[in-house]
Amino acid sequence: MTEFTPILSLSGGVLIGLSAAAAFVLFGRIIGMTGILARTLDFDFGEGSWRPFFLIGLVVTPLVLSMIAPSPHGFEPMGLIPMIIGGFLVGYGSRVGSGCTSGHGICGISRLSKRSIAATCTFMTTAVITVFIIRHVIGGSL
């Protein structure tokens, strides 16, 4: 069980949206994690090396916040094997599908991109089916 947190999640969503909106207006870029990671690994850092600097802000801020105020949400990960299998499929699939939850789910839908809407519907569906199979057919976890 995790607690339903509409206010916190809506507030966090607005911050994510502000980041995406500012990236549109200031940079004319989408902040899709798949693209930012792939290009950074390719040493394509972008104008003024904005991509690695974005990643530094993303990586460091939650740690700083957690030292000031512990997360009310907790941290309950899956086991090591699901993390490794899941990580690989996410890394491969997001490249084939040209994006993930940030690039398609937030930035793409906000532009009313048909591709991003199709991608988001697809990954939501397969993710729901995957969790259903793991939790209710296999029963428990991987």
């Binding site: 994690m33 299998i85 990580g87 996410v90 084939v96 939850t101 397969t126």
Partner: peptide, 26 residues
């Protein structure tokens, strides 16, 4: 590729409960 890749992404997301952004954040 868009549909196939997104389908694979969703399976990995469901297995791990993580996508790239939150993974970097934590």
């Amino acid at each position: 590729p868009l549909i196939l890749g997104s389908a694979i992404f969703g399976i990995g997301w469901g297995i791990s409960g993580l996508c790239p952004g939150p993974a970097f954040a934590s």
